[in-house]
Design a protein around this nucleic acid. Structure first.
Lengths: 159, 159
DNA sequence: TTATTATGGACATAACGGATCTATAATTAA
DNA sequence: TTAATTATAGATCCGTTATGTCCATAATAA
């Protein structure tokens, strides 16, 4: 139950892109240098982010990456879903077990429909996941950039 | 970023124990039958739960497992922590990278103390984790038992 | 004591995460 | 057009973790 390192790298990389100027591509060399990750590995991560429309990539001289949309429209949830996948965090593996059915059938009985509802345990876990997703959706790359700049000005004022 | 099957089994097993009578041990055979998991594997999981004081185990004839404390005092969080471990869900792997420090130093500068604060990304992720933990702490085995019985009486009323 | 049951250790296997390398395609500058 | 640069995709490797089995041992009650 841990986020992968790839998610870590992706988040840092996107914040880096967010810091850089508009219309200014950041190459994989520069990026890998800033994060301390190998170019080859980081490439894979950036490719994924491109395929999902989080960043744009320009090959060739002076090419590189830039955010595909404004930083306030890139949420933590977006990024995590790209890297970790979109499967549910919890799923009962043995859906035909006596114990599982005991917690499922009751639900089916309540509604007259034959619609397949999850078991009670799944419901709680799904609820947890929804809470998490909601929180992550509410925080974006811009959140970090704002916070970062706020700290900076604080710092300047003190001096 | 998925919960392991072991967590699934543990949750189902504990609900099963919760359903059974007080002072009545449930053997691993019965338990594994109800869940549809092998005895040998489920044993491992139950042992962990015992070591952490979630269940009591009695060897010998008519032995087995029972909840070590009332079902309303066994939260989803308790169970998940036993099975999944207690590490944080997110941790920056390269804490000496330029990018990471950029998001950390500002924080250190703000407070005069040399106390090591996490980077801004970690802060958001930690916030997410706290939300999740709070939710999971608020749901117990008893939650499931209550819900299960509620459905039952509903069912009975309809008939 | 004997039958029963949980426990712990060793072990096997498959899947996944993390990481590297290389060949290829696309783009721009000269 | 050519050359340099840069991203992309595929193959592959290694180590760790999840999942699962088996067996010997210890503890308990009848």
């Amino acid at each position: 139950m841990q986020f992968s390192k790839s998610t870590d790298y992706a988040l840092h990389a996107l914040v880096h892109l967010g810091h850089s100027e508009r219309r200014h591509n950041v190459g994989i060399k520069q990026l890998s240098g800033a994060l301390g990750v190998s170019e080859s590995y980081l490439s894979k991560i950036m490719s994924k982010l491109r395929q999902d429309g989080i960043v744009r990539a320009v090959p060739g001289v002076n090419g590189g990456y830039e955010l595909a949309r404004p930083a306030e429209q890139i949420s933590f949830l977006d990024i995590i879903e790209v890297i970790e996948g979109r499967q549910r965090m919890f799923e009962c593996s043995n859906s035909s077990s006596q114990q599982h059915l005991l917690l499922t059938e009751a639900e089916i009985a309540e509604q007259e429909s034959p619609k397949r509802e999850g078991c009670l345990i799944e419901k709680v876990m799904d609820g947890a996941e929804q809470h998490l997703r909601q929180y992550l959706k509410g925080h974006t790359i811009q959140t970090i950039l704002d916070e970062s700049r706020k700290r900076c000005t604080h710092d300047t004022n003190k001096k």
